[in-house]
Each structure stands twice: as C-alpha cells, then as structure tokens.
C-alpha cells in the first residue's frame, strides 16, 4: 500500500515529487541545524549578521526559489496525471461508491460488474470514472496513483496504469461514516488474455 513503492507511471510521478520535497526539506533542516550549532560555537559570528540580512536571506532569498521550484515540479508532474481529452482515449471503468462499498462496472463489457474487486488490464492506461451515491468518498490505490473524490451528483475521472500484473489494495480515503475503515477494495491487474477471462467471469 506504500506510495513509495509505485507500480505505475502516475504513482511514480507522485513518489518523485515526494522525494524532491523530502530531500529539499532535509537540506533546509541541515542548514537550520548548522546555524543553530554555530550560534552556540561561534556566537560572535552569528551576532555579526544584521537582522535585516536574516529577514531578506531567510525570509526571501532562501524560500522563494525553493517554493517556486516545488510549484513548477508539482505542476509539471501534476499535468502528466490528468486524463486529458484528445488523442487515443484509454478504456474506461466505472467506480461507484456507496456506504460502505465500491462497485465497479465495465462499459466495454455490458453486464460485467464487480464489488470490491476492480479488474484492470496491466500495461495500459485506464480512465476510472468515479461517482458516489450518498456522501463524499475518495478513491485511492496508493501504488497506482493519487486520490480522487467520489462526490454525489458529480463525475470525476482519474487515469491509472498498473505496469505489471498483480494485486494492489485500494481504500476509501475520505471519512464517510462508521463503516469507513472497512471500505476497501482490491485492484487485480491482469495480462490481456487473463483480463478477458476475468471480465467474462464478472458478467
């Protein structure tokens, strides 16, 4: 279930962003700690820095480039996660949330439906069309991509891809009532031949 063990391109982008932020935060932490140590070991050196230089250096020069770099990284990586229209459209699967279970249907295979098991073909993107019946839920498969809300009366779409066949756990990531913690599901990613068999069995 770890987001740091990505199994698809969307999750890999998110993990990359996390690592960029982690190492950036670590560098800043080390810098602050070094200044703290210097304030004990070389207090005269620290005292020689004028307050205006602390404000400009620590309040503007240091954080602004870092925040802009993080904003750019988040935007560039975030754009890659979006299910944009145009081009070859991937297969669509519908995920419908209700208290407290997930139901999945497969428009390309009429009549096919599963509860708490989502069948996906491995190695290709799939658009998950997320809706809700009652309250706000959230669809999340940590090893495949980010979260997306399931909102009554609204349709959200998230594009996911499992690079390899396997089983990936998913959860409801928005508190939705007393059964929230039981509202999990499993993604079974199949090779193309196995996917047809799995969907055939779900009809």
């Amino acid at each position: 279930m770890s987001t740091l063990d990505p199994a698809g391109p969307a999750a890999a982008d998110i993990a990359t962003l996390w690592w960029v932020m982690f190492w950036g935060a670590l560098v800043l932490f080390a810098l602050v700690m070094a200044l703290l140590v210097l304030s004990f070991l070389r207090p005269a050196m620290i005292a020689s820095i004028r307050p205006i230089h602390w404000i400009i250096g620590g309040g503007l020069i240091m954080p602004v480039p870092i925040l802009i770099a993080l904003l750019m990284a988040a935007l560039l990586l975030g754009e890659q996660l979006l299910p944009k229209p145009g081009g070859v459209q991937p297969m669509r699967v519908e995920a419908h949330a209700s208290r407290w279970q997930w139901q999945f249907s497969y428009p390309e295979t009429p009549g096919a439906a599963t509860t708490e098991i989502l069948h996906l073909p491995a190695g290709e993107p799939v658009d998950i069309v997320v809706t809700a019946a009652d309250v706000i839920h959230a669809f999340w498969v940590p090893r495949l991509g980010g979260k997306i809300d399931a909102i009554p009366g609204h349709t959200n779409v998230i594009r996911l891809q499992a690079d390899e066949p396997g089983v990936y756990r998913g959860i409801c990531a928005e508190y939705c009532g007393e059964g929230h913690e039981t509202m999990g599901f499993v993604v079974e990613a199949h090779s193309p031949a196995d996917y047809a068999t799995a969907i055939g069995g779900a009809q």
């Binding site: 802009i68 904003l71 935007l75 975030g78 754009e79 979006l82 299910p83 944009k84 229209p85 779409v157």
Partner: peptide, 14 residues
C-alpha cells in the same frame, strides 16, 4: 503573479 500564474498554462478542465 506567482500563485495564479498557472492559470495561464495549466489544464483548466479534464
């Protein structure tokens, strides 16, 4: 300028 700059380029609808 910075925080709303993405409205110039980022995807608006999906």
């Amino acid at each position: 300028a910075v925080t709303f700059g993405p409205t110039l380029l980022a995807s608006a609808c999906i």
